[in-house]
Amino acid sequence: MTARALVITGYGLNSEEETAHGFDHVGFETEILHINDLADNPKELDNVQAISVPGGFSYGDDTGSGNAFAQKMRLTLGDSLKEFIARDTLTIGICNGCQVVVNLGLVPAINGEYGARQVAVTHNASARYQCRWIDMKVENKTSPWLQNIETLHVPVAHGEGRFMMEDKTLNTLKANDQIALRYSKNGESANGEFPFNPNGSTDDIAGITDESGRVLVLMPHPERGMFSWQRDDYAALKDKARRDGQALSDNSDGIKLFQNAAEYFGVNAMKKAG
């Protein structure tokens, strides 16, 4: 037996396969489930340890990205998502999934107020879609998703990735250590500078967690940067390894989040135990 991961899809979400590939790769029993099928049977969540709302363009980003899909989840799944999170489970929202989970109010859920929208993820400062590789610094040392990760080099691809909130909320997030990831420039703060901070996000925020750290949302795409061959500098790394007479490692930064999730549930131990 092993832990089960669910990747939700439908209505324009589109990164379910590569996200499922990540969970699958680290040993989860992984299922891609259409939101309508989950809505038919929300109890399905009782048998699941990790869920992901993946990237995409649910409802074309219209009425605000993630807004309409969040409404659909809210109305069709009722309290079962909150019950899922209340258990010792892991949740990750990536890109459009980040926008959905934020709009559902499952994150940052300050004071445990799951369901209340406390931050917004809005139009990039450039008002333009940006697809490029970025660097992030891991700020939160306690989230199960981010254990033993210092930095992440993965791509972004979004038109609305700018975290915005009241100053009061920002201060609370800082105080609570809920800012999980920040965009960085050569290892230092990106300080809002484009393209290092690709969207003008407040305080360079790329990802946040709930107070438990078990719910993580981020705009960049770890599932598109799991393997060396996916990297923008793959050709250079490959060349260097060849000159050094070394084999290039298969894994890259993005897979670490999935490995951490597997670690959290002892997936490998479970597998060995059969």
Binding site: E18, C131, Q230
Partner: peptide, 18 residues
């Protein structure tokens, strides 16, 4: 190129900007 998502599906090896 920067406006066109060339990384979705996780399949990019050599992208449009090198």
């Amino acid at each position: 190129a920067a406006q066109y998502d060339h990384n979705v599906q996780g399949s990019a090896v050599l992208g449009p900007i090198q």
